[in-house]
Write a protein that binds this DNA or RNA. Sequence first.
DNA 1: GTCTATACGACGATAGAC
DNA 2: GTCTATCGTCGTATAGAC
Lengths: 230, 230
Amino acid sequence: MSEATAKQGPDTRARILNAAESLFMTHGFEATSMRMITGQAGVNLAAVNYHFGSKDALIQEVFKRRLTELNRDRLSALEAEEALANGAPLKPSKIVAAFFGVSLKMAADTEHGGATFMRLLGRTYTEPNEFVRQFLAEEYAEVVQRFMSALYRALPDVPREEILWRFHFMMGAMSYAIAGTDALKLFAGDFDDKDPTRLMPRLMSFLLGGLRAPLPEEVVESRTSRRDAA
Amino acid sequence: MSEATAKQGPDTRARILNAAESLFMTHGFEATSMRMITGQAGVNLAAVNYHFGSKDALIQEVFKRRLTELNRDRLSALEAEEALANGAPLKPSKIVAAFFGVSLKMAADTEHGGATFMRLLGRTYTEPNEFVRQFLAEEYAEVVQRFMSALYRALPDVPREEILWRFHFMMGAMSYAIAGTDALKLFAGDFDDKDPTRLMPRLMSFLLGGLRAPLPEEVVESRTSRRDAA
DNA sequence: GTCTATACGACGATAGAC
DNA sequence: GTCTATCGTCGTATAGAC
């Protein structure tokens, strides 16, 4: 159990990916060394750089696998709602539920590392590193565009820039929701962990309240004055 | 300007702290090496470990200085509102503005590294590291308790556990708001950076909408059934 | 093409001389 | 208190064996 799970595995590349994913999700990216990965995979240290180029590239590959799946599920959820609506604009609650419901579902999967992955994903958004953010942008481009279009239709009176910002805020709230109970316990020692299924309705109420909140005065003013000018 | 700002500075400890703060806020904690710090401070490499014990301890010291100041300002803002209210419960908007207004103000200070600090602070909440979270809990204990008390009074009909969660969600939204425009640009290439002073009203609308949103059904149900049982 | 052995420079940390 | 020398580990690069 200590190391070298299997010595004559068929695909070195796959063994590295599996070992890396498992270790990353358990210890985080930084705390996982190349020597830990290659040790567990039973391959030579240099194999990682040969197959992936660098540790960062390996991280990206592991990340990509999960993120692609996650975004596919998010799009499926949105499309399912759109099919039901039959061309009519979706209710904001349906759109938000499609995006964040799928996210929380993966976050609830503690067995396959989904929870750890979602925590890492939340942190990655605020990563100062340039190429990480750019990679994330590419992965998100399609799904964000689709969800934004749905929201534009659902909220025709809200300026698009405002919707974009509020979606951004919602992602932040979700990130903390997933990072979760641990952080909350710090603030309230008597805090009960309770049923994690309550998180979803809790978060949904908050997100919808924020999304449909009255527009900030400055935006209202600028819209009013624009209307006045016209 | 390259290194060794002053060779015969009086207080080695202070010179290390200043150099560390400057470098941390510019490059982040991890990207700043001990050799960079001691080089800029004009002291020996081993001096950091002698005076602070470790790099982590030095990070805590620098972090603490900022966070103490930030939380002091947040409490001052709350107390100023409470003085105006003369014993009456504060409006939720005043409470939220006190906490997050001060935060955004520090985040807007790009000159002294306030922006970088706030970005790092936002990430630190979701840090899996145990002692980092415990340190943060101690630093936040008083200010969170005070703000929660104010919110309990302001929203007597909302279950306290719900308020706690929503405050947590608000912190997440703020964290992403500060991490900011860079992340947003990734999703919308045509996105305009615009006036950063608009961020505050934008965020405030969202936060208040979320804070005052209708309670999730499950919470309402459990409260109703509890009332029924009584 | 794959893979291994080995070495390189930078990192945080520490023991011991002054 | 401060310094030098050195330790073990890190990610990475490369020469050469299969």
